[in-house]
């Protein structure tokens, strides 16, 4: 039972908690100009809903202590004579001072703010002499929801860890208690042992994956634009790959504890960080991109996003399928070899 409750609880918590939809970011304002234009711009910034002015600063020397308390993320600094400068020389600087010890927030806040300021400039320009009208189409994710980014990753991570843990620990337990030896002197071939061990977990994990994906669709509003049978096939292929990874681990270790450490320590963090779930794959350095490609979750995330969100057909995504099947065969082949060697 815990094997169903656990993934469901995790997906629900992460589905709500993990997002980068910034709103009400606390910022500080240091306005040494106090003129119409700066007030107008500040109002525009507050009006955007992304920012709240948490603190008004008096002088630049106050900035470090404000940051050290960690309450505000950014200081918007209008130097003295801002407006005069603006109308005199047609350009004036303002400073966006971001607390970059939290880089993501720093980049996102400065990017939002620059966007607002550009928009403000463009409006002023249009009043004078017209501008280019830009229309933007956000493809696949019109409302820019972060669940589209995080839910597929969470699904892939949880399925992999649970499936791999289950099988590796179960087989290692048999080894520890000596029951595997009993099986291996019976006339059953190693293939049959593995298949027999894995099938119950396969069914369990598949059910698990369906439950999680249904949650994604009905609670978090993931779309389901592609073919359902293709999605089921993807889940099946991925689950088998994770289970066979578990088998592989179990053939390499002696005890349950070693199996647990091997599965958790070697799978969890790399899967999280290298599969494209947290960091975009295209910004990884080349050697890590190679590693990223040998992580099953990477390909499953591509599959889920392509099938569910983009509605891609098999002609677009045959590649990840082939890779996952190839990995599974490799894991199983190596496991059977080492089982045979043990006998």
């Amino acid at each position: 039972m815990i094997l169903f409750a656990l993934p469901v609880a995790l997906v629900i918590i992460f589905g709500y908690a993990l997002n980068n939809d910034y709103k009400n970011i606390p910022i500080g304002v240091l306005n040494q100009s106090k003129d119409q234009t700066s007030e107008k711009l500040i109002n525009r910034i507050i009006g955007s809903g992304y920012f709240v002015v948490e603190k008004s600063l008096e002088k630049p020397q106050d900035i470090p202590s404000a940051f050290k308390l960690g309450k505000i993320k950014l200081v918007l600094y209008f130097p003295a004579h801002f407006q005069k400068e603006l109308y005199h020389s047609k350009k004036a600087q303002i400073q966006l001072i971001a607390d970059a010890s939290d880089i993501n927030t720093a980049i996102n806040t400065t990017s939002y703010l620059s966007g607002i300021i550009n928009e403000f400039n463009a409006e002023n320009a249009r009043e004078i002499n017209g501008g280019i009208q830009i229309s933007t189409r956000m493809i696949f994710n019109q409302r820019l929801l972060s669940v589209y980014l995080f839910i597929p990753g969470v699904i892939a991570l949880i399925l992999l860890i649970i499936s791999a843990l289950l099988t590796s620990v179960t087989l290692a337990r048999e080894k520890e208690m000596g029951t595997l030896e009993l099986l291996s002197i019976s006339p059953i071939s190693p293939y049959m042992i593995i298949i027999g061990k894995v099938i119950p977990y396969l069914i369990l994990s598949l059910l698990n994956s369906f439950v999680i994906i249904l949650l994604g669709i009905f609670i978090f509003g993931l779309p389901m634009t592609g073919s359902i049978s293709l999605l089921i096939l993807a889940c099946f292929v991925y689950t088998v790959a994770s289970l066979s990874l578990g088998i592989l681990i179990s053939t390499r270790v002696e005890t349950q504890q070693a199996a647990m450490f091997a599965s958790l320590v070697t799978l969890m963090m790399p899967t999280m960080l290298l599969s494209g779930f947290i960091f975009p794959i295209e910004s990884l350095p080349l050697p890590l991109q190679v590693i990223s490609n040998i992580i099953p979750a990477t390909h499953f995330i591509v599959l889920i996003k392509s099938i569910m969100i983009k509605g891609a057909g098999i002609t677009v995504i045959w590649q990840p399928f082939i890779i996952l099947i190839g990995m599974t065969s490799l894991f199983l082949f190596v496991s059977i070899q080492s089982l045979k060697r043990n006998n």
Binding site: L41, L86, K91, S101, S114, N124, N129
Partner: peptide
């Protein structure tokens, strides 16, 4: 047209 130029400073990093 008058233009406001945002200068970005990333402190601590």
């Amino acid at each position: 047209s008058p233009k406001i130029i945002p200068i970005t400073n990333y402190w601590y990093n």
